[in-house]
Simulated scan of single mutants.
Amino acid sequence: MSSGEIERESGKMDGRPWPWLDTSLPFLGMVLAVTALATNMIISKMAMSSGTSFFILSLYSNALATLIVFPFAFFFHRSKRPPMTFPVIWRIFLLAVFGYLAEIGSYAGINYSSPTLSTAMLNLVPAFTYILAVIFRMEEVHLGRFSTISKSVGTVVSIAGAFVVTLYKGPAILNKPLIAGSPIQLLLSSQQNWILGGILLAGASFLTSSWCILQASILKMYPAEMMIVAFYCLFVTIQSATGSLIAERDLTAWRIEADMGLVAIFYSAIVNIAFRLYVTAWCLSRTGPLFVSMFKPLTIVIAVVIGVIFFKDVLYLGSVAGALVLIIGFYMVMWGKAKEGEMNKDPESSINTSPLLLQDEPEQV
């Protein structure tokens, strides 16, 4: 059992006040993380539509995030900081490769299509993550158990619900649809190449799943979330600088003149990279990759809510119905994980596993 698990278990035994925070905080953290991601998709699309290169957007955002995170990381882990060894360094570098390729693929996919298609393709992340987690023995599969059946069926149901939100409209139940479309809809739907965008976004989803699996294993070796995020941002900055030098030969592309471009850079650096990556790493260390990936389909629901509230987009019956189906699937997975947690706490259990969402191989921090 890792030190983090021992501290959490000892806290429960010592009668720590508000023990429900141990399970509630990861849930709240991931809701905030996917909200940051959905908002970043919309802002980034608006910036790219105004002429900002997604290569330059990635470079400047990660460079600014590196400058922000590094001082906080050394201050946050000043008392006890594990030694940064070469095995940890090269794994973080590989993590940065996955993250940079996923980020560029996502930006390019949004540029060719729309944030709606991007959030729809994120529905593939839980399926990819579940398969990889089973392959790397981060998730147990016992076909005769209701917990495994609930996790598997819930994953499929949640993905189906998110696709319902994307593909089925139904009658409008809030705001009136405009024949010509709202300015934001016109902005986000111009010059679309859905096939190429879909391929790029599907590849980004697989890389995101691989990113979750790899980071979970790194957190086992190096239990310092902020330091991992700091070095991750540094490596992504180096990689994005190399990619930008190759892709953007015109020096004018390196100048950010549009106001929306500056907004996108600062929002992406502070909220989408620094804040979201730390929260995601924190949740990964306490729950596991499947729990984190299950929140990806919620991104499209949050994107719909943001559109309805701030851009006066039309709320359709399909969005509400799909959201309900998605929530049902999500809770099926959570129920299966909770049942596994109960079995793991049973001393008579024939399988020696860790507490809720933390499997024996690999052990989570």
Rank of each mutant, 00 (worst) to 15 (best):
residue 343 M to P: 00
residue 327 I to P: 01
residue 333 V to T: 08
residue 206 F to P: 02
residue 216 A to L: 02
residue 107 Y to L: 12
residue 22 D to M: 07
residue 46 M to C: 05
residue 342 E to G: 11
residue 186 L to R: 15
residue 222 Y to E: 05
residue 314 V to H: 03
residue 58 S to N: 13
residue 291 F to E: 00
residue 206 F to G: 09
residue 365 V to H: 12
residue 239 Q to G: 05
residue 48 M to S: 02
residue 18 W to H: 14
residue 320 V to N: 08
residue 27 F to K: 07
residue 138 M to W: 01
residue 142 H to T: 01
residue 286 R to L: 06
residue 44 S to H: 05
residue 69 V to C: 05
residue 226 M to L: 13
residue 356 L to I: 10
residue 354 S to F: 09
residue 10 S to Y: 08
residue 357 L to P: 02
residue 314 V to L: 10
residue 364 Q to H: 05
residue 56 I to T: 09
residue 248 E to S: 07
residue 7 E to N: 10
residue 27 F to M: 07
residue 15 G to K: 06
residue 344 N to Y: 07
residue 362 P to T: 10
residue 110 I to Y: 00
residue 329 G to N: 02
residue 68 I to E: 10
residue 259 D to E: 08
residue 40 N to L: 11
residue 156 V to I: 14
residue 359 Q to Y: 15
residue 37 L to S: 13
residue 148 T to M: 05
residue 211 W to K: 06
residue 250 D to S: 11
residue 207 L to T: 00
residue 335 W to Y: 14
residue 43 I to D: 00
residue 204 A to L: 03
residue 26 P to N: 10
residue 126 P to R: 01
residue 240 S to G: 10
residue 193 N to M: 04
residue 189 S to M: 13
residue 80 K to T: 08
residue 94 L to W: 08
residue 318 G to I: 04
residue 151 K to M: 11
